[in-house]
């Protein structure tokens, strides 16, 4: 089994590891790189727990062949905080009880961060649309939407 070298930028840091043939990016990030923030929920592009950004676009890491991200820029939820300083979205998720079991949370945060980077003042409908690819089974959508809107409205650190 010939492994392929993969060089990528992960959360602004250059990283490299070897990918197995057929290994998806989710498994590669978790097992070869050691970033455990993207989660496995379905392996079929349904749940969004594995959401990362690749060159600025949200994608499902379980549906990306690891070797195809060679030379690309990948961001995950573990890159949201800057040391001990959290992203305002992370603060807002804590304040608004926007996580229960926490398993969908990393993917949800990546989707939300990408939305706000492009559209700092989204409407409620735009927030709903932006997280529509991320399933939460603890039915925490309302607090999640509220948390994202609170950041959009600049109220998170009020």
């Amino acid at each position: 089994m010939v492994k392929k070298p993969v060089n990528l930028t992960l959360n602004d840091s250059p990283r490299a590891a070897f990918a197995d043939p057929g290994q998806n990016l989710l498994d590669f990030l978790r097992r070869e790189i050691g970033d455990l923030s993207p989660k496995f929920g379905c392996g079929q592009g349904t749940c969004g727990a594995c959401t990362v950004t690749i060159d600025g676009q949200t994608q499902l890491s379980c549906l990306v062949l690891a070797e195809t991200v060679d030379g690309k820029e990948v961001r995950t939820a573990s890159g949201l905080a800057n040391g001990a300083t959290l992203d305002p979205l992370q603060d807002a998720f804590m304040d608004h009880f926007a996580a229960q079991c926490g398993y969908c949370t990393p993917g949800m945060l990546v989707s939300a961060r990408t939305l706000l980077d492009r559209n700092p003042r989204p409407t409620r409908d735009e927030v709903i649309e932006a997280i529509s690819g991320n399933l939460c089974r603890c039915t925490g959508y309302e607090p999640i939407i509220t948390a994202i809107l609170s950041v959009a409205e600049g109220r998170a650190r009020a």
């Binding site: 057929g22 998806n24 392996g43 079929q44 592009g45 499902l60 379980c62 549906l63 062949l65």
Partner: peptide, 16 residues
């Protein structure tokens, strides 16, 4: 392999 949304499911399920 195009966008991967169809083919990668098969890869993950071991039927590609």
């Amino acid at each position: 392999l195009g966008g991967g949304t169809v083919v990668m499911r098969a890869v993950n399920e071991g039927v590609a």
